[in-house]
Amino acid sequence: MDAPTPARPLMDGWFTLDPAHPHLLGNRCTRCGTYYFPKLRTGYCRNPDCDGETFEEIELSNEGTLWSYTDAAYAPPPPYVAADPHVPFGIAAVQLEKERMVVLGQLATGTELRNLELGQPMKLVLEALEDGRLVWKWQPLEGAK
């Protein structure tokens, strides 16, 4: 048997592929310091007081605090590719302190909603969606609960 093919990222250039320490890839205005995720691609900073037009690619903090959470009890519509039958999954909104922004993502498989508490530390992990495509997910920092 061949080794299993590594899961293909859902999108290229959105996150690093280091399985131990993955990072979301954003960019940052070199003039005012505003971060963007997904990467700003228009070439013009969205800060109304900034006329910045140059951006550096950056790795976003891969730890943050839980801003809120929920789950998807019903299969989302396309373009989500749901398993049949649908397996409910959690969704988290995580506050990144340095970037002063909140980023959504699914919760890592096996995370129990009832154990979560707002403000608790979370970390970024890579995991496949139901259709096998690799994306970022959020997981409680002290391992999956």
Binding site: S68, D71, I91
Partner: peptide, 30 residues
């Protein structure tokens, strides 16, 4: 297939309108 459209992207990740309503509701509870 429109990954540059944020509305397409969030659905691809499984994030529907009720997701946002629920995130806000959970904040109220906390």
């Amino acid at each position: 297939e429109r990954p540059d459209d944020p509305d397409w992207l969030r659905f691809r990740l499984g994030i529907t309108n009720p997701t946002y309503f629920a995130l806000y509701a959970r904040r109220r509870m906390a």
